[in-house]
């Protein structure tokens, strides 16, 4: 593989995301590790969105739905396990679970199912209408969660201890970071392979020229729906991890602000760039952290910086640093 500027940059980023928390660990700065974990998890959500957004050209403003479903999968399973209240008794007794692998599985399955339904309905529209219909589905779930008093409603659900992963102590920040980091790397590798696969190429072709794809006997609808489901599933997995990071889940995870934030991570890093979400998330969290101490009105500075980036750094951060080549392919 040729080392282009972009791939050098990618390696540097993924290495930095590892080195910073390890350094923080040796200096006993656990909060830096928490920030890095947050960055890794939100980047994972962005990687999921980027499959729909960058690869499929599907601008979804409803990915908070999947992020939140993942979060609630964690919250509901863990709350039942913690309170010893069976989740259901038929066809077999199930008391919830505090095992991460099972929680992840449930999160992925349910967010994929939701993405299948939402995608099948939404993909009948396109352009701005697609943006808004995905937003509408997100808002429906948001208002539902607010009034769903069995699981805390607006107050959300809080879990006393982080869920368990066999062989690791997940309460130790660096070990939990390792879990998030490994999953992020796996997802990046998966997204890279997906983009180069026949499916990925067909999807990219459908984005650029629908008729040509139809002419070779593929249906763009099926391609896009598949991409949307994969995208939703990955974002759902990120949601489960995010809820575990905070040991808490609430409807905030489902609000349109969350959808917007995930999208902003992707745009900030560079749409369609494989590592764009990683760059975007890291930059955003860094800015938030650094500016937060300046004054009560720090969001003005954040706004100005975001504006400068979008006006003068075309193609996001990676575009600005690595030039204009395409990442996928």
């Amino acid at each position: 593989m040729m080392l282009t500027r972009e791939s050098l940059l990618n390696w540097a980023m993924i290495a930095a995301l590892l080195i910073v928390p390890v350094a923080a660990w040796s200096l006993d700065e656990p909060f830096i590790i928490t920030l890095a974990t947050k960055a890794a998890i939100l980047a994972l959500a962005g990687v999921g969105l980027n499959i729909a957004l960058g690869l499929g050209g599907l601008i979804s403003l409803g990915h908070a739905a999947f992020f939140g479903i993942g979060g609630y999968a964690m919250g509901i399973l863990a709350a039942h396990a913690q309170n010893y209240e069976p989740l259901f008794e038929w066809p077999f007794l199930f008391e919830g679970s505090n095992q991460m692998p099972l929680i992840w599985l449930v999160a992925v399955v349910f967010s994929a199912l939701a993405a299948l339904v939402i995608g099948a309905l939404s993909l009948r529209t396109s352009g701005v209408y697609f943006i808004m219909i995905t937003l509408a589905f997100g808002q429906m779930l948001y208002y539902f969660a607010i009034s769903w008093s069995a699981y805390g409603g607006e107050d959300g659900l809080s879990i006393w201890v982080r869920n368990e992963f066999p062989g690791l102590n997940t309460l130790d920040p660096i070990q939990f970071f390792a879990i998030a980091y490994v999953i992020l790397c796996l997802a990046l590798a998966f997204a890279a392979r997906l983009a180069r696969s026949p499916f990925g190429l067909a999807l990219a072709a459908a984005r650029q020229n629908e008729d040509r794809v139809q002419a070779v006997g593929l249906t763009p609808f099926t391609l896009r729906l598949t991409a949307f489901v994969i995208s939703g599933a990955i974002t759902g997995l990120a949601g489960a991890l995010f809820a575990d990071l905070n040991r808490f889940v609430s409807p905030t995870m489902l609000s349109w602000h969350t959808s917007g934030e995930i999208m902003i991570f992707v745009i900030l890093g560079g749409v369609g760039r494989l590592y764009g979400p990683v760059a975007g998330t890291a930059l955003y969290i860094l800015l938030e952290h650094l500016l937060g101490g300046i004054s009560d009105y720090w969001q003005i500075f954040l706004g100005v910086l975001l504006l400068l980036i979008v006006l003068f750094a075309r193609g996001g951060l990676i575009g600005a640093l690595a030039g204009r080549e395409k990442a996928h392919g």
Binding site: L53, I264, I267, V271, G303, L306
Partner: peptide
């Protein structure tokens, strides 16, 4: 997408 990000910054 760029419009969304820029106008979001304007909101802030």
């Amino acid at each position: 997408l760029d419009q969304v990000l820029a106008t979001f910054a304007l909101i802030l």
